[in-house]
Design a protein around this nucleic acid. Structure first.
Lengths: 334, 334
DNA sequence: CCGCAATATCGAACCGGTTCGATTAAGAAA
DNA sequence: TTTCTTAATCGAACCGGTTCGATATTGCGG
C-alpha cells in the first residue's frame, strides 16, 4: 500500500511537503502541488487512518451505541441509525456500530482505546448504566432519550409530554370523554424508558384538567399477546370512544385486530398514535398520529456531537432539546 | 489518557516489557506481571487503537456495507446487521457501518485508509459495482447475495432455487394447480437482485415439470400500490388456489388485504412465503414459509471473513455457500 | 567450577502520518 | 546594494504502540 513517503519520492519532495499540500496548512507552489496530486492519483494514495489518528488523536469516527432488549420490537431502530450515519458522513465521520450486550464496558473500551471521537447513545433510559462511563470518558456524547440527570450532556428527545397533550386535546376537541391509552409494555417502564411515563403522565394530567377519563394499560410486545391484550382493553372499556396507542408493536398489529373484531375506524372507534412516517408506511398504518421524527432526532444528535467535538470547551453549556411533535391527521378520528 | 509508558513507569519496567506482558509473546516473571497488571488497572490503561493499528496493520474492525435503495422496504436489513455485529464481537472485531450512497467510493476509502481488516457486503447484486473495488482491495471480503462471478470471493446466500422448489412441491403435493407468484418489485430485478429471478425461474421450471401453472407478477414496495396490485393479481387469476409471496412488503401487507377482500386462509386461498422468524413475528404473519435465516447468513459471512483475514493465503479457495432453506408449516395451506 | 541454554528484561527501531522550527530563494522596501 | 518579508520547502521529532536483537541472570550438566 502506498504511503506518504512513496508520494513524496515520486513527486520529488519531502514527506512534510506532501502533508502540507494535503492539509493546505502551508502554502505550496502550483507546480509542486500539481506534481504531488499527480503522484497521489498515480499511486492511489489514501492517508493511513491509524497513523493519522495516532498523531492527531482524531479518528473521524463516531460510536453509535444501540441496545437490543429482549422482547423489544426492533424495526424502529433503523429509523434512527440511517439518518445518523448520513449526517455523520456529511460531517466527515464514519460510524462504529456497537451492539454489545454489556454496553457500559463496550463504551469504555471504544473511548479509552481512542477508536472514536464521540458517541451517540440511543434509547437512553432514566438511569442509564452507560452514562457514568460516558461522563468519565474524554470524548463527548449525545443522547437520544431523556435520563434522570442531563448534567453536562447533550440530550435530544421528542417532547412526549407535548405529544400526549396534542393527542388528548385533539380527541377532547372532537367530544371524546372516555379514552383507552395503550402505553409501552410494563418492562419498558421498569427499565426506565422515560418516554413511557412522560407520555402517560402528561395524558392523564391533561385528561384530569378536562375532567375526562383516560384509562391507561400496558401494551404487549409480541403476538399473540398483543391481540389478546388489546381485545381485553376494549372489552374492559366498552364505552370508550377513542384509543391512544403509544406502542409500536400494538399499533402495528392494530389494523388486523380491529378488523377481526369488526371495529371500524373512525366510525366505531377513533384511533390516534405516535409513529414515524416510515414506520407508518412500512406497516401501512392509516392512523392520525404524531410524527416521532427519528430522522430529525438522529441528525440533530450528530450535529450537537460534532459541534462539541470541534469545540470541547463548549461555546455554551450542553443542550437538552425537545423536538416539537407534529400531528398528522389521517382521518382516523371523528 | 494513560499510555503504555505510564504503565511502564509505574510498574518500574520498560515499555517493551509491558507490551510483552500484554501480548504474552515472551515470558514474564510472575512478580513483574503482577506489578504491571496493578499499574494497568490503577491507570485504567487501554492500548491506543490507532497506534496498535499503525504498527500491526490490524484494526480489529470490519466494514459492513449496506445499501438503502430508494423505495426499498427496510425492516429486514436489521435482521442481518445484528447477528453480524454479534458474531464480529465474538471474534474480537468491531463494526464500521457504511451506508454511503456512493458505495464503491466508500469501500475504496475505508480499505485504502486501512480502517478495516475486512468487509461484509450486504445485498449484493448480479453486477455489483462494489465488487471491482473489493477485488482491488488488500483486505478480504464476504458477500451476502450472489453476484455474476464469485471468482476469488467468499459468498453466502440462501438457496433461493431450492426454496422455490420446496414451496412449489408443497403446494403441488396438496393438489394446487394454479398458483399466483408475487416476485420482488420490478426494480429489484432490474437492479440485479439475483435472488428475485433465481427464485422465480426455479419456481417456473418446477411448475413446468409438474405440468401446473405458476403465474408470476412483480410486487410493489409501498402502499397503497401493494394492495391495488395484489387485488389485481387475484382478480386476474380467479381460479388460482394458492399464492407464493416472495416479497417482504407484499407479505407484510397481505393479512390486511385478504381480510378486507374477505378471503380466508387457507380455506379460500393457500398462502406460502419466504421470511425470517423475526420478520414474521414483527408483522404477526401466520403463513407457512421458508425461513430466510438472516442470522445464519450474517454469522457465517463473518466467520468466513475472519478465517480469511487470519489466513489470507487461504487454506482453500474461497467458498460459495448456499444455505439450505427450511420450511415452517404454520397451517396456511390445505 | 565452567560453559551453555533458558528465562526475564531492556533499548532502539519502526509503523505512517503531522507539525514545528530552520533554511533557502525571491521580491519589496530602504 | 543591502535588509527585511514572505513564500516554499525540508529535516527531525513525535504520536503510542510492537518487535527484534542484545544483555543480564539463573540453573544445570559435565
Amino acid at each position: 500500500m502506498a504511503t506518504i513517503a512513496d508520494v513524496a519520492r515520486i513527486a520529488g519532495v519531502s514527506r512534510s511537503t506532501v502533508s502540507y499540500a494535503l492539509s493546505g496548512k502551508r502554502s505550496i507552489s502550483d507546480e509542486t502541488r500539481r506534481r504531488i496530486e499527480e503522484a497521489i492519483s498515480a499511486l492511489g494514495f489514501t492517508p493511513n487512518a491509524g497513523a493519522r489518528a495516532l498523531k492527531t488523536s482524531q479518528t473521524m469516527v463516531l460510536g453509535l451505541l444501540l441496545q437490543f432488549h429482549q422482547d423489544e420490537f426492533a424495526p424502529a431502530m433503523l429509523e434512527y441509525m440511517l439518518p445518523i450515519a448520513d449526517e455523520a458522513r456529511e460531517n466527515g465521520y464514519d460510524i462504529l456500530m456497537v451492539t454489545d450486550a454489556n454496553a457500559p464496558q463496550a463504551l469504555d473500551r471504544i473511548t479509552r482505546s481512542g477508536m472514536v471521537d464521540g458517541v451517540v447513545l440511543l434509547d437512553v433510559t432514566h438511569d442509564d448504566p452507560r452514562l457514568p462511563v460516558l461522563r468519565g470518558a474524554r470524548q463527548p456524547g449525545a443522547l437520544v432519550g431523556l435520563p434522570a440527570s442531563t448534567e453536562g450532556l447533550e440530550v435530544l428527545d421528542l417532547d412526549f409530554g407535548e405529544a400526549a397533550r396534542q393527542l388528548v386535546d385533539h380527541l377532547y376537541g372532537l367530544g371524546h370523554r372516555e379514552i383507552i391509552l395503550i402505553s409501552p409494555p410494563k418492562h419498558v417502564f421498569e427499565r426506565g424508558g422515560a418516554y413511557s411515563w412522560r407520555f402517560r403522565d402528561a395524558a392523564m394530567e391533561r385528561a384530569a384538567k378536562y375532567g375526562i377519563q383516560v384509562f391507561p394499560y400496558f401494551g404487549e410486545s409480541r403476538q399473540p399477546a398483543i391481540a389478546v391484550s388489546v381485545n381485553a382493553f376494549l372489552d374492559a372499556r366498552p364505552n370508550a370512544t377513542a384509543m391512544i396507542v403509544h406502542n409500536d408493536a400494538s399499533i402495528a398489529a392494530l389494523p388486523a385486530i380491529l378488523n377481526s373484531r369488526g371495529v371500524r375506524v373512525p366510525d366505531d372507534l377513533s384511533v390516534v398514535s405516535l409513529y414515524s412516517k416510515n414506520f407508518g408506511r412500512a406497516f401501512s398504518l392509516p392512523y392520525t398520529a404524531v410524527e416521532t421524527a427519528p430522522d430529525r432526532l438522529g441528525q440533530q444528535a450528530v450535529q450537537l456531537l460534532v459541534r462539541r467535538i470541534m469545540d470541547p470547551a463548549g461555546a455554551g453549556t450542553p443542550v437538552t432539546r425537545f423536538i416539537a411533535p407534529e400531528l398528522t391527521d389521517r382521518g382516523s378520528t371523528k
